[in-house]
Simulated assay, not measured.
Amino acid sequence: MTGGYVWPRLPAAGAGQRVGLLGGSFNPPHEGHVHISRLALARFGLDFVWWLVTPGNPLKNRGELGSLEARLEACRLVTRRMPRVRVTSVEADIGISRTRDTLRFLLARRPDLRFVWVMGADNMASFHRWHAWREIAEMVPIGVVDRPGSTLRAASSPFAARYRLARLPETRSRRLADAPPPAWAIVHGPRSDLSSSEIRRSGLWPRDRMENS
Rank of each mutant, 00 (worst) to 15 (best):
G63Y: 15
E91G: 02
G66D: 06
V85W: 01
L72W: 09
T79H: 13
R84V: 03
S89H: 07
R76D: 14
E91A: 00
G66Q: 06
L59F: 13
R81P: 14
K60Y: 05
C75A: 10
S89T: 11
L77N: 08
S67G: 11
G56R: 08
V49S: 03
R76S: 12
G95Y: 11
G66R: 07
V87W: 07
L77F: 10
A40W: 01
W51N: 00
G95V: 11
D47Y: 02
V49W: 00
R80M: 13
R81Y: 07
L52F: 02
E64F: 11
G63M: 13
P58W: 09
R76L: 12
I94G: 09
E91K: 00
R43Y: 02
R71Y: 06
L72K: 04
N57M: 12
V78G: 09
S97R: 10
L65A: 15
L41K: 06
V78F: 04
K60M: 11
A74E: 09
A40E: 05
L46F: 06
G45I: 00
T88E: 01
G56I: 01
A74Y: 02
L59N: 05
T88A: 10
L65P: 03
T54D: 06
S97F: 09
G95E: 03
R43T: 11
R62Q: 11
F48Q: 09
F44W: 01
W51E: 06
